Amino acid sequence: MSNVPELLLPLWRTLPWRALGAAAALGLLVAGASRLPAGFSPWLALNALRAAALAFALGLAFLLDDPARHTTATVPTPRPVRQALRLALVAPFAALWWTAAVLLVPAEVRPPVGAVTLEAATVCALALAGAAAAIRRTDEPEPGVGVGAGLLTVAVLAPLLWPDRWELFVTVGDPEWADAHERWGVVLTVALVGCAVWAREPVRRLRVRSPLT
């Protein structure tokens, strides 16, 4: 792992800053919608933050894009380390962005920060898990567009198709609020496990050659 420090600058240069910046700007605009004169309601504030988190997650879907993927695959640093370094470089930016998004929502209508942060972390983890799965299962060096489209599709269909007994998208004050966020925690755990599993290098089959060949 002695070559990890040498990877930081090249990785920084290849991060999808344009996609992340655009997603972050869109998210802040959406979060700021709760400050509109007619928008001071807890329901709007909650859903504005949910939409902002989704917007940023769409940017994270591009995090593992690497046009030089087939070249960097030969470096001695394992893929899980390279992907973890990409995430580590973006994490401070993501934390600052989320803090700004939350503070844009007026305090009097702001939903419980811990609960809504759990939701945001889950959506972002799902984006990263999708990107890791696409990298592992395909040869596509830049799967971000497909992963983002898939995440957006899931976000639109989930509230419509998700079973009522496992409801996730509840409002503040709903009796199911605490139970729903326990379920959010389960989904987050599954997404993080997916990130870890799909980050692994593919197992290459070893060819046993006959001594006569």
Rank of each mutant, 00 (worst) to 15 (best):
V90T: 03
V102D: 02
R86T: 01
A158I: 07
P80C: 04
F62V: 02
A57P: 05
T72P: 08
G59A: 00
A23Y: 00
W43R: 13
T153Q: 00
G32A: 09
A134S: 08
L60K: 01
G144D: 06
W166F: 13
T117M: 07
A149Y: 00
A180G: 07
A61W: 01
P175G: 10
G39V: 00
A115H: 10
M1T: 12
P211H: 09
P211F: 09
L160I: 12
A19Y: 08
W17C: 07
G173F: 08
P37D: 12
L87K: 05
T77S: 11
R86N: 02
A68V: 10
L58I: 09
L26T: 05
T72D: 09
T171F: 13
A84G: 06
S34N: 04
W177K: 13
G148M: 06
G27K: 00
A158K: 12
E6W: 14
R35C: 07
A33T: 06
L103H: 12
V105A: 05
G148R: 03
A199K: 00
L7H: 14
T138W: 03
D174Q: 06
V172I: 13
P141H: 04
A158R: 11
L8R: 09
V105T: 09
T138P: 06
W177E: 15
P141G: 04
L160G: 06
P175R: 13
A53N: 01
L188C: 14
W162Q: 10
A133R: 11
T71V: 15
D179C: 00
S210V: 10
P5H: 05
A24V: 04
V145N: 09
G185H: 13
A61V: 01
T153K: 01
A73F: 11
A24T: 05
L188P: 11
P92Y: 05
L118I: 07
F40T: 14
P143S: 08
A149K: 08
I135Y: 01
L8K: 02
A133C: 08
L58T: 05
W98G: 01
W17M: 06
C124L: 04
V197L: 13
V81Y: 06
V203M: 14
L89C: 12
A132K: 04
T122D: 02
E176S: 13
T117V: 10
L85F: 03
R137D: 12
E142D: 11
A84D: 03
F56W: 12
P202E: 02
G59Q: 02
R137N: 11
A22S: 05
W43D: 15
A22L: 11
A57Q: 05
A129L: 06
V193H: 11
W43G: 08
A52W: 02
V4G: 11
S2Y: 09
R209Y: 12
V154L: 15
W198L: 14
T138R: 11
V30F: 00
G150E: 05
T99P: 00
A100E: 04
A38G: 14
A23F: 03
W97N: 01
V172M: 11
D66N: 08
P37T: 03
